[in-house]
């Protein structure tokens, strides 16, 4: 009985690994997935990557752009209501990507950032899409407060802006089959929350740091 459980465990673990490799390969063939470390090198320190969000492929893109040894300690944020809809989506996000779920619908008694804080306290790096949802305009939408709150609570984590270029053409909202387009992820110079900087100013600055990477 125990042995069987173990075997099932190993097989599902391997399936998740293969799925990870498959998605990595797919994203390379489709997009070239070029990582451009412009403002900082890839490094094993606690980081909060924040990027623009236009497509589901963003998650895989930024994940593929990281060196393999950082992938296991860097966890993306995903919306609980969408990504736990079906067993497959749930399996993909938990077993393959090991994401952190957050609830988008606010209930008064829980802090939506609770799971993120737990992950950061655990020493993991996180990938955050501060727009909260996928946009389809040229410019990213206004950033939500989560980034500010995390930065205030974990001053030790390095805040790295990232611009994901072109991914919206690969898989626009509502489409199923991706098309090949060359994409790149540009990582910029880390920013910091200044002493006494208020929320709106910081979020505006963070958004500008992301947008500035379009040009480099």
């Amino acid at each position: 009985m125990l042995l069987r459980g173990l075997r099932v465990c190993i097989i599902t673990g391997m399936l998740a690994k293969f799925m990870g490799w498959f998605l990595l390969g797919l994203v390379r063939v489709l997009t070239g997935s070029q990582a451009r470390w412009h403002g900082c090198p890839p490094k094993a320190e606690q980081r909060i990557y924040f990027a623009n969000h236009q497509s589901h492929a963003d998650l895989v893109m930024i994940w593929a752009a990281l060196p393999p040894e950082l992938r296991s300690v860097t966890r993306a944020i995903a919306a609980r209501d969408y990504w736990t809809q079906s067993p497959f989506k749930q399996w993909l996000t938990t077993e393959v990507f090991n994401v952190i779920y957050v609830s988008r619908d606010r209930t008064a008694d829980e802090d939506p950032l609770e799971p993120l804080l737990a992950a950061l306290a655990n020493g993991d790096s996180i990938i955050l899409f501060p727009e909260g949802t996928r946009g389809h305009a040229e410019e990213p939408q206004a950033f939500k407060a989560g980034l500010y709150n995390l930065a205030a609570k974990f001053p030790g984590a390095v805040l790295v802006p990232a611009w994901i270029n072109n991914v919206q053409h690969v898989l626009p909202k509502g489409e199923v089959v991706p098309v090949p387009v060359l994409c790149s992820v540009t990582f910029g110079a880390p920013i910091q929350l200044e002493d006494g900087e208020d929320r709106a100013t910081f979020l505006k600055r963070a958004r500008e740091a992301v947008m500035a990477l379009r040009e480099v």
Partner: peptide
């Protein structure tokens, strides 16, 4: 080659 070519052609959502 086609991937390169089309990356530089500004396609829109309707072309997907």
């Amino acid at each position: 080659a086609l991937r390169e070519f089309l990356t530089l052609s500004p396609t829109r959502r309707g072309d997907h």
